[in-house]
Simulated scan of single mutants.
Amino acid sequence: MSSLLKLDHIDRKVLEKLQSNAKITNAQLSKDIGLSPAPTLERVKKLEQSGIIKSYHAHLDPQKVGLGVTTFVQVTLVGHRKSTTEQFVEKVELIPEVIECHHVTGSGDFLLKVISKDISSYQSLILEKINEIEEVASTHTMVILSTFKDSKVLPIP
C-alpha cells in the first residue's frame, strides 16, 4: 500500500474544486484557491503524479442515454480460493454493464452495480452472462427504485 501524501490546506482546496468541477480552467482554479497559475498547475500535476487524482470523467445521466435500470447484485462464489476470486473478477471486468465490482464481507462475496437499458436487458444479462460465470454459485438482485444521493465527491480529511 502506498503511503499517504501529506496534504496542506491548498491541496485540499484544489481537490475540493476539481471534484466539484473537473473542467475548471487553471486560471479560475488559481483564483479560487489564492495562488498564481503556475504554482496551481504544479499542485495539480503533483496530485496527479502521486495518484491522488486518478482520472477525470464526464458524469452522465443514465436515463438520458437510454439506461433505465440500475441494480445491485450480490454474488456468492462457489468457493473462496484465490484463483476462484481472480477468475471471477477477470470475467466480470469484461462485462461493460457491470460498472462497479466490490469484494465484500457478509452473506455474499461480491457486490456488483449493474446498469441496463430495461428489465428485459437486465434479465438477459443476468441469465446469459453473470450466471454463466462458472465461479458464481448464486446471485441476489436488488433493483434501485430511486436514488437520492449519488455523490462522487470524497470528504477529504
Rank of each mutant, 00 (worst) to 15 (best):
102 H>C: 03
156 I>N: 05
122 Y>T: 10
70 T>H: 06
86 E>N: 15
152 K>N: 07
24 I>A: 03
156 I>R: 05
117 K>T: 14
107 S>M: 02
110 F>R: 09
126 I>V: 14
150 D>K: 07
110 F>M: 11
137 A>S: 12
58 A>K: 14
55 S>E: 13
113 K>R: 12
25 T>F: 02
79 G>E: 13
153 V>I: 14
50 S>V: 02
13 K>D: 14
53 I>L: 09
117 K>S: 07
157 P>T: 04
5 L>I: 13
113 K>V: 06
45 K>E: 12
112 L>S: 09
87 Q>D: 14
121 S>T: 08
63 Q>N: 15
10 I>F: 10
78 V>P: 02
30 S>P: 08
151 S>F: 00
108 G>H: 12
84 T>V: 12
70 T>S: 15
104 V>A: 08
112 L>R: 09
87 Q>V: 05
155 P>R: 08
82 K>W: 01
144 I>E: 01
122 Y>A: 13
75 V>C: 08
21 N>H: 08
64 K>E: 13
35 L>E: 15
20 S>N: 11
151 S>V: 01
135 E>L: 04
61 D>P: 06
115 I>F: 00
2 S>E: 15
9 H>Q: 13
17 K>I: 12
13 K>S: 14
36 S>W: 02
128 E>W: 00
80 H>N: 15
33 I>Y: 07
100 E>F: 02
46 K>E: 14
11 D>I: 03
55 S>D: 14
39 P>S: 08
87 Q>T: 11
154 L>N: 06
30 S>H: 06
141 T>H: 01
12 R>G: 01
153 V>K: 07
56 Y>N: 02
64 K>F: 05
46 K>P: 05
144 I>A: 10
100 E>P: 01
127 L>Y: 03
73 V>E: 12
144 I>P: 00
